[in-house]
């Protein structure tokens, strides 16, 4: 057993070498899977929904309802982004279930997402207060730290939650392989009998539960902060 960063698979020799890691490749797989899934769910759309179209509409309604209740009507425009990031986050984290290294175990992935959210918050602020009005906030130096800490903490939260689940699953797997080789001798070391089924029970908490919660927390934070940023000054004083 070895715990290390994502393996570099190959390097594109332009711009001083762009490294294509396991994370990138699995990320592409996740995107392809999602495109196929969405194409499947939205093919043959009818006025009166039935079958798979009902599921797709339920998801869209759920996301729009969440955005409206958490971020407010003014921020309803971010709903497509929120829905996309939720799906991508869940699918990336759950890709651990098919045995590949999930893209969210790399801080680059979550940092990229939180930077997008950071840009979204800044854009919303500029839209609500005007460019110079939004600069007024930075007169207080503590606010600068507050603003800059947000993407860092969002990226670290998602990354570390999935990472801890991943490492624990690796450790449990190594332990079960060791136990089966001790219990069943040579047979066990070639074919780790105990690794069948038992890790699935742990995986329910560490992979399934954690993935859903972290994806939900991520979109929740996005909605809350964009909602706060979209408030005009006079509303802001009431809080």
């Amino acid at each position: 057993m070895e715990i290390a960063g994502a393996k570099v698979l190959f390097e594109i020799p332009i711009l001083g070498g762009i490294r294509i890691t396991e994370t990138t490749v699995v990320g592409w797989g996740v995107l392809v899977f999602l495109v196929v899934l969405v194409r499947f769910f939205t093919s043959r759309i009818e006025k009166i929904p039935k079958g798979k179209q009902v599921l797709a509409e339920m998801y869209v309604n759920f996301i729009y309802g969440q955005v409206e209740s958490v971020a407010g009507k003014r921020a309803l425009k971010i709903a497509p982004y929120v829905g996309t990031i939720f799906l991508v986050s869940i699918t990336s984290s759950l890709s651990a279930l098919v045995g590949v290294r999930p893209p969210t175990v790399d801080i680059n992935t979550t940092a990229a997402w939180s930077l997008v959210t950071f840009g979204l918050i800044a854009a919303t602020k500029i839209k609500a207060h005007g460019f110079f009005g939004h600069l007024k906030e930075y007169l207080n130096p503590l606010n600068i730290i507050d603003v800059l800490a947000l993407p860092v903490s969002m990226a670290l939260r998602h990354f570390s939650n999935i990472l801890s689940g991943y490492i624990l699953m690796e450790l449990i797997g190594a332990l079960l392989a060791f136990c089966s080789s001790k219990l069943f001798g040579v047979l066990g070391s070639y074919f780790p009998v105990l690794k069948i089924g038992i890790p699935a029970a742990f995986s329910v908490y560490f992979d399934l539960f954690g993935s859903f919660i972290q994806a939900f927390v991520f979109i929740m934070l996005t909605m809350v902060f964009v909602g706060m940023a979209s408030e005009k000054d006079e509303e802001h004083k009431n809080i």
């Binding site: 715990i3 670290l156 939650n161 990472l163 801890s164 490492i167 919660i213 972290q214 939900f216 927390v217």
Partner: peptide
């Protein structure tokens, strides 16, 4: 559940530091 996820994060920051110190 939302609140627990937030509370857990503080612990996981420490966990990341520990993992870095041991494995990387």
């Amino acid at each position: 559940i939302m609140g627990l996820a937030f509370a857990e994060t503080t612990c996981l920051y420490g966990f990341v530091i520990a993992i870095l110190l041991i494995f990387a």
